[in-house]
Design a binder for these strands. Structure first.
Length: 233
DNA sequence: GCGACAG
DNA sequence: ATCTTGTCGC
């Protein structure tokens, strides 16, 4: 889908997509999804997965898995071009879309306001939140070592683009930013409500586990309903 | 020019 | 991201 794009073309495209971003309050959130990608080193096969959980209970209800071929390389600032096509393919397998999707990466906390979460949000016309494990853009400001402590992350111009959030004591924070169709504050509140006993919030943590099992052959492609209270993860 | 750099 | 052993801390 983006395999023929040069990084220059990609950057221009990101700037155009960013003009379409909308931020507003979401109401009555009942389902939240986590999306992630896994792949073998030096392989063009991407294993994409999206898990859907009840909100705010964080109980896994269903998940979808699908593979996708891409040769687009990873490059900081262009993660969406590598992952979004694969995520859109799994997204099609989901009939009842979740209220909001959490992506493993940034939303507008990005040099051109088009991190993977914003990119997916625009193309899928879906509310999304970015939750990254390390900082890509902006001035890092570490929150104090207290659970749910946060600090604002601003760029060189002083614009608030996201937050560093301490999800677990003695662990590095995660970086939260709005992707699309949601506000920065609500994104932060939702991520706080999605934290379990791990540093990574439940949606993306479960998505990561499931795509990894998919990659090693323990799970198959397709849409799967989770009936019995599954304690796999 | 130099340093930084999601997954 | 993936590949991997040991090791520090609660």
């Amino acid at each position: 889908m983006y395999d023929h794009y040069s990084f220059e073309d990609a950057a221009t495209y990101q700037i155009e997509l960013a003009k379409q971003l909308k931020f507003h309050q979401l109401e009555r959130i009942q389902t939240i999804a986590g999306a992630d990608i896994s792949f073998n080193k030096n392989s063009t096969t991407m294993y994409a997965g999206i898990v859907i959980l009840s909100y705010p209970e964080m109980v896994l209800k269903s998940f979808a898995l699908e593979t996708y071929e891409t040769s687009f390389p990873y490059k900081a600032g262009f993660l969406g071009f590598k992952e979004v096509p694969a995520l859109l393919k799994v997204w099609e397998l989901i009939v009842e879309k979740p209220d909001v999707v959490v992506l493993d990466g940034n939303g507008i906390l990005h040099p051109r306001r088009m991190g993977v979460a914003s990119h997916f949000g625009i193309l899928a016309n879906q509310a999304t939140i970015g939750c990254a494990k390390s900082l890509l853009h902006g001035k890092d400001h570490q929150p104090e070592n207290v659970r749910y402590s946060t600090t604002e992350i601003k760029n060189n111009l002083g614009e608030l683009l996201g937050f560093a959030l301490k999800t677990k004591i003695n662990c590095a924070p995660v970086y939260v930013s709005a992707g699309h169709l949601i506000t920065a504050d609500q994104s932060l509140a939702i991520i706080k409500n999605s934290v379990g006993n791990y540093r990574i919030p439940e949606p993306t943590r479960m998505a990561h586990n499931i795509v990894n099992d998919f990659r090693i052959g323990k799970l198959k492609a397709g849409f799967h309903e989770v009936s019995a209270p599954l304690t796999l993860f």
